[in-house]
Every structure is written in structure tokens, then in C-alpha cells.
Design a protein around this nucleic acid. Structure first.
Length: 231
DNA sequence: GCGACAG
DNA sequence: ATCTTGTCGC
């Protein structure tokens, strides 16, 4: 059926790329995300851990109050690794379990923070964009490496940023953002319903004492625990 | 052919 | 992603 087809894991890279090209038309780049740090706003962090030996993975979704960064609720999901790792196709590997974990949360988040890219992607449709389109939720991406993208020097102070550029086209796809003074920046990009500026503001609000947003740190810890847990 | 491109 | 202690420095 049509719906089953939409959510089926692609059989090969060609089909995966075609699916990205089809879905990317649904990305909303107009910001409708909540005000960063607003009390009562629920921000979800999602992450996935892998066990290459068993071929299984675990996803975690952690729900935080945006004002105090305290955990409101969390959920996990486990399953077989559905797709091999290919640069540019990460979403097909992580999305099924992430969606399952998100669906197990007691409340629908107002914003989702992903590990990886959104607009900063070869086809401008990274994990954060894909998750946003599928769920309809405001979504942004935070990555630890710039990979193929380039950026100029940025100041050493927390909050400093520089445009992240596609070296092929010169297109601005996100920002290198310093979340801790003197520490390597993180690489932020818009996913869905979140602008680049808002994405940076959200990340700064979520990363107050560590380089990574608290959403990412907690989700990372939880999915590792879920992967290691028996059963 | 080589380098390399989230996790 | 993951294998992984101690060590340097604020």
C-alpha cells in the first residue's frame, strides 16, 4: 500500500537517494520553533548506538524542559540495523528506531535535536530534515564534524559562529558554533521548521556547560545503556 | 585512481 | 558508531 511504501526501508542506495529527493520538497525552512529556553517547552534529544557484532541498535529519546534542562521523560527502542552506513544516507539507518522511541514518549516534543545534519547534507536533506518531515516537528541537527563543509575562523568565545559553506556551490548550509570558550565548535544546521539562527540559539541554550547540547549527552548515555541491557 | 562525506 | 588509561591544564 501507499503508506507502507512510504515507510519501507529502501532496498538500495539508489532507491534511498530517490526517496530523499522526493521528500525534500516537504521541508519547511520557515522558523516556527518555540522561543529558546522558554519554560514549559519540551525539547527532545535523540541518538542511536550500535552493536556491530549482533547487528542490532538502540535508540533513545529524552524529553527535557527547555528552561532548566531537567529530564521530563525518556524512552528507548531496539531492533536490527535496517540499513548500512553510507555518508548521506544516515537517516535510513537511524530513523526507524528513533521514530519508535519518540512515539513512546508521554508527550509530543516542541522541538527535536538530532545528532548529525539537516540542511548541511549533499542533497540538503540530512537526518534532522528527514525526521522533521516525517514527524512534522520542528527539528535541528548538531554534528561533531564539518566533514566536507568549510567555514572560516571563528572567535574563541562561547557563542562565536561562522557560516558553514558547501565548497562546491558556496551555499550556506549551517554554522560552526562555539558552545564552550576555547573548545572545538559544533556544526549546526536547520532541519525542519527551524531557521539557522534559531537553531544556533537553541543549541546555545541547551549547551550551557558542555560542548554538546544536554539533549544529545543524555540521549547518547541512554541509548548506550539500552544497547547494553539484557534482552 | 584517489580522497572522503554526519553516525 | 566503536576499541579505551592516564594525563595535562584551568
Amino acid at each position: 500500500m501507499r503508506t507502507t511504501d512510504e515507510h519501507r526501508t529502501p532496498v538500495d542506495d539508489e532507491e534511498a537517494v530517490a526517496k530523499q529527493l522526493r521528500l525534500r520538497g516537504r521541508v519547511d525552512l520557515v522558523d516556527s520553533s518555540p522561543a529558546p529556553g522558554a519554560p514549559g517547552t519540551l525539547v527532545a534529544g535523540v541518538d542511536v548506538a550500535y552493536d556491530d557484532v549482533s547487528g542490532r541498535l538502540a535508540a533513545a529519546a529524552v524529553l527535557l524542559d527547555a528552561a532548566d534542562l531537567r529530564v521530563v521523560h525518556s524512552a528507548t527502542a531496539r531492533g536490527p540495523v535496517p540499513y548500512p552506513y553510507r555518508p548521506g544516507l544516515l537517516a535510513f539507518r537511524e530513523l526507524p528506531a528513533v521514530l519508535e522511541a519518540l512515539s513512546r514518549l508521554e508527550s509530543r516534543p516542541d522541538l527535536v535535536v538530532c545528532d548529525g545534519y539537516g540542511l548541511a547534507h549533499p542533497r540538503r536533506f540530512g537526518l534532522a530534515s528527514h525526521l522533521g518531515v516525517v514527524t512534522g516537528l520542528p527539528c535541528l541537527g548538531v554534528a561533531k564534524n564539518p566533514f566536507g563543509f568549510h567555514h572560516g575562523e571563528l572567535g574563541a568565545a562561547r557563542g562565536a559562529r561562522a557560516p558553514l559553506l558547501d565548497p562546491e556551490t558556496g551555499e550556506e548550509v549551517g554554522a560552526a558554533l562555539r558552545t564552550r570558550s576555547g573548545v572545538k565548535p559544533v556544526y549546526v544546521s536547520a532541519g525542519h521548521r527551524v531557521s539557522a539562527d534559531a537553531a544556533c540559539a537553541h543549541v546555545l541554550s541547551l549547551a550551557r556547560e558542555y560542548r554538546q547540547p544536554q539533549t544529545t549527552r543524555l540521549a547518547d548515555r541512554l541509548c548506550r545503556e539500552a544497547l547494553a541491557a539484557p534482552g
